[in-house]
Design a protein around this nucleic acid. Structure first.
Lengths: 315, 315
DNA sequence: TATCAGTAATGCTGCTTTGGCATAATGAAT
DNA sequence: ATTCATTATGCCAAAGCAGCATTACTGATA
């Protein structure tokens, strides 16, 4: 490697040349750069080697740029400025001020509060490209694999995946029995789950939200029966409409009341089932700064969100 | 200076990072860059220090860019490409392939051949911005001072300036006596200069071309008289028109025959005066490559130019 | 004309940085 | 659990670089 000149120009040497060219003096440039004149001389010499052209025309009294030096001076200043810019940009990306934040969300459980969260975040980080996409829990896991989303609002992931994701509980919801408004029990506050043992059930498709459906099934199990599934749908709205139409009863999270489907009644039941949480999840590995910042904002908004998602009347 | 991190990012380290990011491997990057893996590790570490943000997310199995690294990778590649481009541009400037060539010229002595020279040059060096401006010899000297022109086609400069300029003789011309076509001597081939001792003279303004006029005056001096100047003009055409109008005789370079002024006759005279040369001059200090290349082209064209500027008929 | 003053280049030295080797640490896959 | 692949770290020698002293040169000045 002896005497083997580098393939690349050195930005420091370029900056030195710019200073010399603008001050038209090696000595003054040395003072400006807090070093000594011979260092400047050699830096410029090396840069001329690297560039492959003389850049400065020296007399003992004055220093001028050559033709090559003049054009190089112009371009070098641009290059140095650009170098500074890209460093700034990387730092902004590292602070989560630029970049992207792709959000997957569960429409039925987030519609009341998510738009506000997103709006607050976009105001605070206008440089971040935010996208939102409604997805079922299963679709969100797949989207994480493909890198299509950065955070997801969903149900708690199963034991298998738990180690790969970080979770933030947003709010706690309760399973409710959904019956048609024309059902004879529609006006009751509560019922025993085993009263439904022989009723037809309409459920959300298990493959798309196994956590939720398994919770419902285990509730029936504990009540001593296995529900007779008369219908399934990949859309929560459709489930509710089928219930309203009297095609069966269902077990759904209380938050579906925000979906605005008429003709149904949501009842508490005994024995009480475990609560069904809404969580925000994101992969533990390689957490982008945008996600970190979003997490902080969400945490700050948690009280407001929880108040918003708490049923207004008597529970 | 111990542990004092440089203000500038190092292009070599940036290139190393790009290689690592694209190959997604430190080890492979080391092989590609003909060095060893620890060197790569430390270069990337240093670059991350310089940038002020983590750029790569390392596991033992794979290497990925962080959010900051992803945007930095994109920009860094542009920066490296740009750095290469500006080096190329400086080299082209050094070879005279880009830049400028500002030409000052003496219209009366160059009009037959200069357009062709300029055209040839522009074809060979299309990247050079060529400008031409008609100027008297004195104006050319001033234009050189201001850096307004790079080469000049003019008369030989005086002793005082000679050391500052390089000269290339283009062609050799002879002083002629100009008389009106209606003059009784108009059809003669030659006359003795002293025949004009008592005639009125019309001359080009001395201040604008001292070399030429001093040559004419010294010719008269040697013929034993001092001409009686009846008129002066800063335009050679005007001088000739005044001669044609019979306002006087003049002493002019033979090349004025190309100006296309009618009604005059150009005669040889005795005693023969020193020849009046047309030269190309340019400052000795800081000769731009464009000028060097132009000089080469002009030298190659000299025979053609001289043939073109030689009077066709008997001399 | 000779001296002087100011500037860039060069020789040299010691410190800093960097590359290369050996090895440790770590995580994934079998 | 073990092994393999990969990156990080400790160490050393070589190279690069800054700083000092000095030289060489030129334009200005007396």
């Amino acid at each position: 490697m002896l005497l083997w000149h580098n393939e690349f120009m050195d930005l420091k040497r370029i900056a030195t040349f710019v200073t010399v060219a603008e001050l038209q003096s090696f000595t003054e440039a040395a003072a400006r750069l807090h070093t000594v004149q011979p260092a400047i001389s050699r830096q410029v010499q090396q840069l001329e080697q690297e560039v492959g052209a003389p850049l400065l025309w020296r007399t003992k009294r004055t220093v001028r740029t050559t033709a090559a030096g003049a054009i190089f001076l112009l371009r070098a200043k641009e290059l140095l400025a650009r170098a500074g810019e890209i460093r700034e940009e990387a730092q902004r990306a590292n602070r989560g001020e630029v970049g992207r934040l792709a959000i997957g969300y569960l429409g039925s459980a987030t519609s009341p509060f998510l738009p506000d969260l997103v709006q607050r975040y976009r105001r605070q980080y206008p440089g971040v490209k935010v996208t939102v996409a409604e997805m079922t829990p299963t679709e969100q896991i797949q989207a994480f694999e493909k890198g299509a989303i950065d955070v997801g609002f969903t149900r708690p992931v199963d034991r298998h995946q738990r180690s790969r994701f970080q979770e933030l509980r947003i709010y706690e919801d309760q399973l409710k029995v959904a019956v048609s408004a024309s059902d004879r029990r529609a006006s009751r506050r509560s019922l025993a789950l085993r009263e439904l043992a022989s009723e037809p059930f309409v459920l959300f498709e298990r493959a798309l939200a196994p956590g939720l459906i398994d919770l419902a099934l285990s509730a029936c199990q504990r009540a001593g029966f296995s529900p007779q599934v008369a219908g399934e749908s990949p859309l929560m709205q459709t489930v509710l409409v089928m219930v309203a139409a009297g095609m069966g009863v269902s077990l759904v999270p209380g938050c579906v009341r925000h979906l605005g489907v008429n003709g149904i009644s949501l009842l508490d039941f005994t024995p009480k089932a475990a609560s069904v949480d809404l969580v925000m999840i994101w992969p533990k590995t390689h957490i982008p700064p945008t996600v970190q910042e979003f997490e902080g904002l969400v945490k700050g908004q948690l009280p407001a969100v929880r108040q918003q998602m708490t049923p207004p009347g008597p529970r």
